[in-house]
Computed example of a mutant assay.
Amino acid sequence: MTASPHTVAEMIRRQLEGLTPTERKAALVLLGNYPVPGLQTVAQFAKQAEVSNPTILRLISKLGFSAYADFQQRLRDELEDRLRSPLTKDVRPSEVTDGEDATAYSAYWASVTEAMSASRHLIRPSEFDGTIALLSDGRRPVTILGGRLTSSLAMQMYLHLRELRSDVHLIQSQTGSWAEHLLDVNSSHTFVIFDIRRYQDDVVRMGQEASARGAKLILFTDEWLSPLSAVAKHVFALRIAVNSNWDSFAPLSALIEAMIARLSALRWPEIKMRIEELEAARRKLDL
């Protein structure tokens, strides 16, 4: 099974390298405030991107749309999905109310399995390897940030990564103190950010500012793409929609585990010594 790109944003991410400089400029403008520019007229989109009208039309043609109206309809459909909350998501009643609990459990498990399978095919090896290279570089401090719900994923990444290497930091405090984590940030820093639909403005602004200071961003997001995809070095846009009022973190969590496994395998002799030292320190504290 090979999953095709589901959103316009994912189509763009997959084709960025093959676009002309002007097409790429327009594409990045669209990603930077997705999907607003694409919902405007061709002329308005072109003016905002500072390119010509024909450039916009060539871009949407390369994305596989025969008409600008078709392109805009896809964006409108995505916008509706992107803004869904647990109150507005459609769940098939027969799969959650019909039969015994085991039936409902099996149906939910099947939907998560489908999301996991689709997500696996949306992970590009170059993105994965590039992320591993950044995270394994001990000279690069790593800062991790999640949102209101995705903070649990940020914590998962942090708890594993801090045992594998030094200089790993988790942002947990109130937004008002986040600025402290931007002090001294430059091109030698790596930020790992989790941001899924109904994207958090404070998380987005934090990522944008870190990027503006030169930090390399690794973004974990969903198929509708956080606005941070426009500035992130590596983007993992996975399927999170399942047959529930709530989205599933399972694909994102599995990707974190895959990265930790790869990092461990690449540097095991060094990591083994670090964990042995950690275990020795724990035993002393226990005593």
Rank of each mutant, 00 (worst) to 15 (best):
6 H>G: 08
7 T>A: 14
10 E>S: 06
11 M>E: 05
17 E>G: 10
17 E>P: 01
18 G>I: 03
20 T>L: 05
25 K>R: 15
25 K>D: 01
27 A>L: 04
28 L>N: 09
29 V>C: 13
33 N>P: 00
49 A>E: 07
50 E>K: 10
53 N>F: 07
55 T>L: 03
59 L>I: 13
61 S>I: 00
63 L>Q: 01
64 G>E: 10
71 F>W: 04
72 Q>L: 11
73 Q>P: 02
75 L>Y: 02
80 E>K: 12
81 D>M: 10
81 D>W: 11
95 E>C: 02
95 E>A: 07
99 G>Q: 05
102 A>H: 13
102 A>R: 12
106 S>N: 06
107 A>D: 09
113 T>K: 12
116 M>E: 08
119 S>C: 07
119 S>M: 01
124 R>T: 12
128 F>T: 07
133 A>Q: 12
134 L>K: 11
136 S>A: 15
138 G>A: 14
143 T>M: 12
148 R>K: 14
150 T>F: 03
151 S>H: 08
151 S>I: 05
152 S>Q: 09
156 Q>K: 11
161 L>N: 00
166 S>T: 11
168 V>C: 07
171 I>C: 04
171 I>T: 01
177 S>I: 02
178 W>R: 03
182 L>V: 08
183 L>R: 09
183 L>N: 07
184 D>M: 02
185 V>H: 03
186 N>W: 05
186 N>G: 14
190 T>L: 05
196 I>Q: 14
197 R>K: 14
198 R>L: 14
201 D>A: 10
201 D>M: 04
208 Q>A: 05
209 E>L: 14
211 S>P: 00
214 G>C: 07
223 E>Q: 13
226 S>M: 06
228 L>M: 10
228 L>Q: 03
228 L>S: 03
229 S>T: 15
229 S>Q: 08
232 A>R: 07
234 H>T: 08
241 A>Q: 15
245 N>Y: 09
246 W>A: 15
246 W>G: 05
247 D>K: 07
248 S>W: 05
251 P>H: 09
255 L>Y: 08
258 A>D: 15
258 A>K: 15
259 M>N: 06
260 I>G: 01
263 L>I: 15
264 S>K: 15
277 E>T: 14
278 L>A: 10
